[in-house]
Design a binder for these strands. Sequence first.
DNA 1: CTTCAACTACCAGAATTTTCATGTCTCTCT
DNA 2: AGAGAGACATGAAAATTCTGGTAGTTGAAG
Lengths: 225, 225
Amino acid sequence: MKILVVEDEPKTGIYLKQGLVEAGFVVDLVENGLDGLHLALTEAHDLAVLDVMLPGIDGWQVLQGIRRAGKDIPVLFLTARDQLEDRVKGFELGADDYLVKPFAFSELLARVRSLLRRGGKAKESEFLRALDLELDLLRRRVTRSGKRIDLTAKEFALLELLLRRQGEVLPRSLIASQVWDMNFDSDTNVIEVAIKRLRIKIDEGFEPKLIRTVRGMGYVLEITD
Amino acid sequence: MKILVVEDEPKTGIYLKQGLVEAGFVVDLVENGLDGLHLALTEAHDLAVLDVMLPGIDGWQVLQGIRRAGKDIPVLFLTARDQLEDRVKGFELGADDYLVKPFAFSELLARVRSLLRRGGKAKESEFLRALDLELDLLRRRVTRSGKRIDLTAKEFALLELLLRRQGEVLPRSLIASQVWDMNFDSDTNVIEVAIKRLRIKIDEGFEPKLIRTVRGMGYVLEITD
DNA sequence: CTTCAACTACCAGAATTTTCATGTCTCTCT
DNA sequence: AGAGAGACATGAAAATTCTGGTAGTTGAAG
């Protein structure tokens, strides 16, 4: 399996290549869009990994070029968190998947494999919703009633868990292991404190309240009118 | 497979039971050492999970009772981080494995399965060493030249990684993914900062220096005389 | 032997997360 | 209904971790 990687930042590019090679792929690495496009058109790759932000022509333009030439290989985009803003809509048109930096290498590998297996179109669902609360997984952003809400990493992870299992009462032990990785201790109240912070941000000033405490059981996010 | 759980704190006990039942085990849960011992002697369990700290007779005494009665079932101990101090040596005598709270439930499950599979004796190696630097995985403590050093969670994780792969140059990308879970960003210097903090704690005031920077490659922990 | 550029180190302020002490609520038992 | 216990909420300090800027080092190129 041969993969084309277009990434201008050498450090990142080298690590990408190294990791993919270790995983058993053949990798062509180039540092700018023009070379990338050229290589994509002259060589036969099974997949392309494109950084969006590239000097000269950007990843998006490279994709256009590839598609215009009639090549239908799956394309995985890499985007920095903030470059993303007004570009997202564009992705609908042609990218097969994207990853927001920073990401774990294992994540990249998983997506690459999934794209190769399924021959493209692996896009994940990008939003989680409950009423007027919306969580944008791609941009890692949250809004309620259209109003943007800034969450920290832990808060986001907690809310994501609650939203993914909407309606289920999640015991503390589950929350602890999911959001805090390690945990099975009882003499701490990190969870309560985190829930409180989250409530202040997503429930305070809004109706109805979405996070409910179930005494003796845990917490649920559910729509109670 | 039937498991005996002896845990006095109801919350923890219930979660343990719940989790183990979900994993397909039959679970007897009791809240004190005496009941635990009684049940262990009258019923046939395949494994026992004992909290060390119990009202009345403690986990250790329960184990003794079980062994005296000639029962040879594997025993997994649960210990709080600080109760551990002067008890550890005792474990050599009869416990098959132990887990320090707080721990991830998945961790417990893994150990339970391993004990059941191998029919006991799954003890992990508990120390990592390099010269006069010693890292005690069980107690999560570090000493250099006998002098105790307090490390934070991240510092510990970083040092553990360096020690486990002693002599290998670890590229930043590897460190980032191992210690920081998510990561593949270049515009951050968390790693440098963490290395610096770690150096201050384990290398400053000692000789030789153990952590070495390999320019352009990463960091190694190695013994250079 | 200089100079430059790329790395790495260092520092301090900011943000996040945890801990701890205390307050409030809810259920149970009388 | 009232007392007590356990569970949860709250607030604020403490600890940890991250960010961004600046300084120092090193190796390569001239």
